[in-house]
Design a protein around this nucleic acid. Sequence first.
DNA 1: GTCCAGGCCAGAC
DNA 2: GTCTGGCCTGGA
Length: 294
Amino acid sequence: MIVETKEDGFLLLKDQDSFDPKMIFECGQAFNWTKEEDESYTTCAFSKILNVKKEGKDIILSTNREDFENLWMDYFDLQTNYEKIKSNLLIDETMDAAISYGHGIRILNQDPYETIISFIISANNRINQIKNSISLISKYYGTYIGTYRGKDYYNFPSVEVLAQADPQDLRKYCKVGFRDTRIVEASKEILKWDSSFDDLMDLPREELKDLLMSLAGVGPKVSDCIILFAFKDKSAFPVDVWIKRVMENLYLDGETISQKKVADFGREKFGPYAGVAQQYLFYYGRENAIGVQK
DNA sequence: GTCCAGGCCAGAC
DNA sequence: GTCTGGCCTGGA
């Protein structure tokens, strides 16, 4: 990968086929990116504000080399070779179509705690409402980091802060609805864990899944999302209504089967990169409304 | 006004 | 174990 420092100090990643901001931030894995008028995207993570812009086949990051190497390289999963994953997943015409449609998707390595809370909020909720709630939680409970293009950015609060939050406040000010107590309860439970999130990275997948599912508001689908988007395990295959519809329509001849069976089917079919396949299929299916009744 | 979303949970079989 | 209904909120 060729990384150049531009005249303004920002970084330029040359010739990135597997890095498309729209695809990365709109395939359902992250809720903390703001789309700007020039089609670039901005977030706040690691107490830093970052803007990402695509120019032709190049990507421009508003950061310096030090932060890039220490933080963003891992966040954007840049050590992973997506060309290799793609060729591994090119097993049929469906995947061929899904991969070419979402060729610029990458799996972000996000903060575990923020990811846990984000996907607890995602249950039976719309993307825009999820984004809005995350943003409000950061605003009311996080710390101010800075202002970028007129918008204020805040760090996502720590587990200690939300463990002490009043559920009614969360509901009233952050519009989380019935997920209010789940957020506080899950935070309290996490505080009781002996292991840090770093330690948990090495846990066997099934153990990690059981541990996550013991949290309030975390079931089969949400735990798979957390494992895929924050614990770097690309074999997790989260099944939501979209993936269920896509799989039933494109692989099961329209037959309706349970969520669990779709999950087993997906893991079996796509193996160690099932989670990446899920993202290609999700983006492909959702953008093209595959299986949605008219 | 009515409907229900990128699931979870409790309660009933 | 598998299935069902209810859940905040707000946009269609």
